[in-house]
Amino acid sequence: MESWIAALAGSKLPIVIVPGGGLFADQVREMQFRMDFSDTAAHAMAILAMEQFGQVILDRDERLAPARSLEETVRALDEGKVPVWLPSSLALAAPDIPASWDITSDSLAAWLAGKLGANALLLIKQTGAFLGSDTIDSLAVRGIVDAGFAAMLPDGVDFHLAGPKDAAEAGALLASGNLPGIRIAVPIRPARKAG
C-alpha cells in the first residue's frame, strides 16, 4: 500500500484515487451475514467503508486531497493535488448505481471515470493473476473485477490493470506520465437504436 500511494501521489498524470473498502468492507459483509440486513443497507455501509479507507490513504501524503464532489475533485486537480474520492455524497444518491454486492469500488471507479470524462481507468489489485489476453468477462468470472464492472465502464475509457509485481516501477512510470500494469481490451458495444 505504501509504495502504491507514494507512486500515485507522485504522478504527473491528473489522477483521482478511488479507495476500495478493504478490511472495512469485509466487516460489512461479515456483519450482514450475522445480522441479516438488506443489500441496500450493506451497500451504504460498504461505501462508507471506502471513505474510511480513503481517510487512511489521505493520511499518507500531503499532496493528497479529499474530494466529496465532482467540483472538489476538479478543484484539487487544478491545484496540482491528487484527489482521493470520498464517495458517499455522490454515490449514495445516484440512481444509476445499484445497491448490490455486484457493485464494488471497481464499478464505482468506472462510474466516476464517466462522470469526470476520464480517458483511462487503472485498477490496482492485490493479485497479479491476470494477463493482457484477459477480458473484462474473464476477470469478473475469477473475481478480479466485480460483476457490475463491464456495465459501468463508459465507452471510450481505456482500462488498465496493475498488481503487486507492478508496484516497483509504478512510481517512475507515473512520474513520466505513463500508467503501470497492462491494458485490457474492452469490447466494442453495439450502438443503441434510437426510438
Rank of each mutant, 00 (worst) to 15 (best):
I5F: 11
L139N: 05
I57S: 07
A42Q: 05
F33N: 11
I188A: 15
I15P: 10
M35L: 15
S138R: 07
F53G: 01
F159Q: 03
G148V: 09
N178R: 15
A140G: 09
D137V: 03
T40Y: 05
I5S: 10
L121V: 06
R142Y: 07
M35A: 14
A67Q: 10
I144G: 05
G177K: 05
A140C: 05
Q27V: 03
A151F: 09
W85I: 07
K165P: 08
V56A: 12
P14Y: 00
T127H: 11
V74G: 03
S11C: 07
A94L: 08
T73K: 06
S38I: 08
F37E: 03
V145Q: 06
E169Y: 08
I184H: 02
E169N: 14
K193L: 14
D102L: 03
T40D: 15
A91N: 10
A113E: 04
W101T: 07
G195A: 08
I188D: 11
E30P: 01
A99Q: 15
D106M: 12
T40M: 02
A41Q: 15
G195K: 02
E51M: 02
L121P: 12
M1C: 09
E72D: 15
Q52K: 14
F149L: 11
D155A: 15
Q126M: 03
P180C: 05
D155T: 11
W4M: 00
A9F: 04
R34F: 03
D39V: 00
H160N: 07
Q27A: 14
W101S: 06
A175E: 11
G171I: 02
G22L: 08
P14E: 11
G171Q: 14
M35T: 04
T127G: 11
V56H: 13
D102Y: 05
S100P: 12
Q55W: 14
F53T: 04
T135V: 02
L70T: 12
K125Y: 05
I103V: 15
G156L: 03
A167F: 06
V186F: 01
S3A: 12
I47K: 01
D26H: 07
S89L: 09
L8E: 01
